[in-house]
């Protein structure tokens, strides 16, 4: 095995490099002293583009919008996802499996389909594009993530825990607070962080539901046609990566710890 394995290892390494080296270059050229063209290696390194980016009102506005959209989408997703998961878990009703499928579907659906569908729906009811149209678009797939995490957790929770709590004298809200919520907490944190990360870097659905508003990913995309801004664009891309990567990494650690605790 040891002698045969090198080919496979090389292929795996190649694939990983192919996927990640471009990202390293984005990071590297966020620090280059050159404004317009890319030469390798960069003639010099500087952090001044961070200051330039921060001074740019457009970027600040886009960052603010993206953060607010991600936060509100996460909250909406947690509330709707948890309620749906609770209903699907505790009660049997007609169309339960179908509902479950429809909730998860937006993850599998190409963003462009979701985007076009939402765009037509928004036009149909004459809804002006706003902060909330973006949130509605993001909520479609954020709800799915929250729902998936919570239902998976609930399915591993014995229904007799709730009966035991009632049996021992706890009323509805006490059972929710002392038994159900602690049982779900890790799933809520994980689902919320994933929903936040998904919303923060989403671009396809957003282009159909944002109108003239610019979220950070849309700002990056529109800046690519202006080469003078290259290093600034790279700085913004770096921020997006960090802001999405941190919650995903945290979510993963969190769910692993919750896994070990049960």
């Amino acid at each position: 095995m040891r002698t045969k394995g090198w080919g496979l290892k090389a292929a795996a390494l190649g694939a990983i490099l192919y996927l990640h080296v471009p990202i390293v270059f984005v990071f590297l050229y966020a620090f280059t002293t050159e404004e317009a063209s890319f030469r390798f290696p960069p003639p010099g390194l500087t952090t001044r583009w961070f200051a330039v980016a921060w001074a740019n009102a457009d970027i600040r506005a886009a960052l603010g919008l993206s953060l607010r959209v991600a936060f509100v989408s996460m909250i909406v997703a947690l509330i709707l996802g948890t309620l749906t998961a609770g209903a699907v878990w505790r009660t049997k009703f007609f169309g339960r499996e179908t509902l479950s499928l429809f909730i998860i579907l937006p993850i599998a659906l190409p963003g462009i389909i979701t985007g076009i569908a939402l765009r037509s729906a928004i036009n149909l009811v004459d809804l002006p594009f706003s902060f909330w149209t973006i949130v509605i678009g993001h909520a479609t797939f954020c709800v799915a993530v929250a729902y998936n995490n919570v239902i998976a957790r609930l399915r591993r929770t014995s229904p007799s825990l709730i009966e035991a709590s009632m049996d021992l004298g706890a009323r509805g809200w006490q059972t929710f607070r002392h038994v159900l919520l602690p049982q779900m907490s890790s799933a809520l944190v994980t689902g919320g962080m994933l929903a936040f990360a998904l919303s923060f870097d989403e671009i396809i659905v957003t282009t159909f539901t944002a109108g003239n508003q610019q979220t950070l990913p849309i700002w990056i995309f529109s800046s690519l046609v202006r080469p003078r801004n290259r290093p600034v664009t790279n700085v913004v891309a770096l921020v997006v990566v960090v802001l999405t990567f941190v919650p995903i990494a945290l979510a993963q650690r969190f769910s692993r710890r919750a896994e070990e605790a049960t």
């Binding site: 014995s158 007799s160 825990l161 035991a164 709590s165 049996d167 004298g169 605790a261």
Partner: peptide, 18 residues
């Protein structure tokens, strides 16, 4: 159940894991 002077030992024990 919470208004009855009765308590139950469950088949799967139903201990609160947290």
């Amino acid at each position: 159940p919470y208004d009855r002077d009765v308590n139950t030992v469950f088949q799967d024990y139903a201990l609160f894991p947290h």
